[in-house]
Deep mutational scan, measured.
Amino acid sequence: QYKLILNGKTLKGETTTEAVDAATAEKVFKQYANDNGVDGEWTYDDATKTFTVTEKPEVIDASELTPAVTTYKLVINGKTLKGETTTKAVDAETAEKAFKQYANDNGVDGVWTYDDATKTFTVTEMVTEVPGDAPTEPEKPEASIPLVPLTPATPIAKDDAKKDDTKKEDAKKPEAKKDDAKKAETLPTTGEGSNPFFTAAALAVMAGAGALAVASKRKED
């Protein structure tokens, strides 16, 4: 009698068979294992007439167990938060979910874009303008004329002030004479000065007065 010990991944146990020799028993056991989907390494112990079949655990490639991950970057252009961060993800969709959660946790809500070549996400917050509040242009400074500094008044001594007054009066006198001369030139000519009769009478009076003066002097002599 021969014995078979099964150490399979899905089947474990023992069974026996009657055979004329070990070779015949081995054929029977291998057919049995094959029928039950057991495929492994076989050993035989002649002392105990025991066969053992052991399935090795399937070696799984690490790449099959853990999907390949890629590093993705997020650029934040927020109104109050600006910067960059990264995450590792199996695909862009997974990275996007992580980045949007990160942005939401930090109060950033804007327009999202993605560049597959650089594996970069960008979120930009738009500045909202309040309706009716149009931007006002800064007032242009008016052209200013530079002020001319005033010349301080120079105090005048009393004596100098009197001299100035005297000079002013002396300066006025010639001007007054000139005014009188002008008035004389502009006076109208009277009839006496221009009538020949009056001129002859005046000469006769003057001659008579002269003769009287000569006669009076002779009497005195």
Rank of each mutant, 00 (worst) to 15 (best):
V28S: 12
D35N: 15
I5N: 09
T54Q: 08
F51S: 01
L4D: 00
E41V: 15
A33H: 01
N7P: 02
T17D: 05
A19R: 15
N34M: 02
N36E: 04
T50F: 14
A47G: 12
F51M: 04
D46N: 14
T17V: 11
T52Q: 10
G13E: 05
A47V: 13
V38L: 13
I5S: 08
T16N: 08
K3M: 09
K9C: 10
Y32E: 02
A19P: 05
V53L: 06
N34I: 02
D39C: 14
Y32M: 07
E14D: 07
V53N: 04
T16P: 06
A23S: 15
N34T: 03
V53R: 01
T16W: 13
Q31T: 08
G40H: 00
K12M: 09
T15P: 06
T15G: 07
G8T: 05
T43N: 09
G40E: 01
A33R: 02
T54E: 07
V53A: 11
N7Y: 14
A25Q: 03
T48H: 12
Y2P: 03
Q31W: 05
D46L: 14
N34Y: 02
K3F: 08
I5P: 00
E14T: 14
N36H: 06
V28Q: 13
V20Y: 13
T43A: 14
A22D: 06
Q31L: 10
F29Q: 03
T24L: 11
V28A: 13
K49A: 11
A47P: 12
E18D: 12
A19K: 14
Y44T: 02
E55F: 04
Q1G: 12
Y32Q: 05
Q31I: 06
T52D: 07
Y2L: 08
V53S: 06
K27G: 02
L4S: 06
W42R: 01
K30T: 00
V53K: 01
E26D: 00
T17N: 08
T54N: 07
N36C: 07
D39E: 08
V20S: 10
T48S: 12
F29K: 03
T10Y: 06
F51Y: 03
W42M: 00
T24I: 14
V38I: 12
T52Y: 07
T43F: 10
V38Y: 03
T48K: 13
G8A: 08
A19V: 10
G40T: 00
Q1L: 13
Y44L: 06
D46W: 15
T10L: 06
V38Q: 03
V20H: 11
D46H: 15
G8C: 07
A19T: 11
K12C: 11
T16F: 11
D39G: 08
K9L: 10
L6A: 09
K49E: 10
T54Y: 08
L6R: 03
T10S: 08
T15M: 07
K49L: 09
Q31A: 08
G13N: 04
E14R: 13
A22L: 03
T17Q: 08
V28P: 03
T17Y: 10
Y32V: 04
Q31G: 14
G37D: 07
A33P: 00
D35M: 13
T50R: 15
T52C: 09
G40Y: 02
K12L: 07
E26F: 00
N36Y: 03
L6Y: 03
G13I: 04
V53F: 08
Q1K: 13
E55W: 05
E26M: 00
N34W: 02
L6I: 15
T24W: 15
K27T: 03
F29M: 08
F29R: 01
V20Q: 10
T54A: 08
Q1D: 09
A22H: 03
V38E: 02
T50N: 13
N7W: 12
Y2C: 07
L11G: 04
K27H: 03
T48M: 12
Y2G: 02
T43D: 08
T43H: 11
N7I: 09
Q31N: 14
T16Y: 11
V38W: 01
E55S: 06
